[in-house]
């Protein structure tokens, strides 16, 4: 008898799993939430201004002259994963998701992606444990120092209480960080500027995902970080055509984004090249090489600082 029920149970389970491939009708909401959450990634369907020097495409493949192929594959996978609606809504009633971008934040159905998400989640948890240990260690020594010298500790000692522990937030942040680190510019940066040489305010510093920040503040930090990393873009000759392509892709909203960001800057040294220089260097030609851009950044920033 239990063979029968067991069999039924199995069927129920496996069909449940198959269902998970196609999103529930309620996914519509999820799609819009995602759009609201990371608009810059989603509103532009073409390669963004960051993508031309990305090491790997969304499918994890190294991007060696396979841009077109890669995006084709992505589209086909997208239609494959059956974004169908179970009810009989008119097509115009629904958001045309198959043409849209792949939601990055949601649970993905293919095993490869699931395992990658799983891996990232575990990495984040491991990082968190390490970070906690480090903070606790710092707190203990600080307390010792306080008792011995009587001096007041810095507000850093309260870090343990200000820690971001929400898994979903950490995972989202990690994805954003990975996105920035998955660039040739980042590779060049860490090679050229070893950790001990880096100066706060001058060199890009990965935002600390374990600190409590508002969503807005965090996204802003990520954006500034990526703008700064951009200075290490390779001066590749063979990427000229891509750069030219990207100028067309570089929508107005991208530039607007940067301009809108500026008023919130407090430390002028933090400022990357002003939008005008950035546009010039992109439009002028992509092969001038980034060290020049970096110099521009510094020369424009320094007079302000003095």
């Amino acid at each position: 008898m239990s063979a029968w029920t067991g069999g039924r149970r199995r069927d129920a389970q496996s069909s449940q799993q198959d269902d998970s491939v196609s999103p529930a009708p309620g996914n519509q909401l999820g799609y819009w939430l995602v759009r609201l959450a990371c608009p810059s990634q989603l509103l532009s369907t073409g390669p963004s201004r960051w993508s031309h020097c990305r090491k790997r495409g969304i499918d994890g493949n190294l991007r060696t002259n396979r841009e077109a192929e890669g995006s084709d594959r992505e589209n086909s996978r997208h239609t494959e994963s059956s974004y169908r609606h179970s009810d009989n809504r008119h097509a115009s009633f629904t958001t045309p998701e198959s043409a849209g971008p792949v939601p990055r934040c949601g649970r993905r159905a293919d095993w490869g992606s699931q395992v990658e998400d799983d891996e990232m989640r575990r990495d984040v948890q491991r990082d968190m444990q390490r970070y906690r240990r480090r903070i606790l260690g710092a707190e203990v020594t600080q307390r010792e120092r306080k008792t011995s010298s009587g001096s007041s500790g810095s507000c850093d000692s309260r870090e343990g209480e200000n820690m971001e522990t929400d898994d979903a937030v950490l995972l989202r942040r990690q994805k954003q960080i990975n996105y920035g680190k998955n660039t040739l510019a980042y590779d060049r940066y860490i090679k050229e500027i070893p950790k001990h040489v880096r100066q706060p305010g001058v060199h890009p510093k990965t935002p600390n995902k374990f600190r409590k920040y508002s969503r807005r503040s965090w996204d802003q930090q990520i954006k500034l970080w990526k703008v700064k990393l951009h200075a290490w873009d390779p001066p590749k000759l063979d990427c000229q055509d891509k750069v030219l392509n990207n100028i067309e892709e570089l929508g107005l909203d991208d530039v607007m984004d940067i301009e809108l960001d500026f008023p919130t800057l407090t430390d002028p040294q933090d400022a990357p090249a002003p939008p005008t220089t950035l546009c010039l260097s992109l439009e002028g030609d992509g092969c001038l090489g980034t060290p020049i851009k970096m110099q521009k950044t510094e020369t424009t920033a320094e007079p302000d600082a003095v």
Binding site: R56, D59, G60, N61, L62, D110, W111, G112, S113, V115, E116
Partner: peptide, 13 residues
């Protein structure tokens, strides 16, 4: 990278 693992798992799926 994990191109191999990804394509292996997806093919397996």
């Amino acid at each position: 990278g994990n191109v191999f693992r990804r394509s292996l798992l997806n093919r397996l799926q």
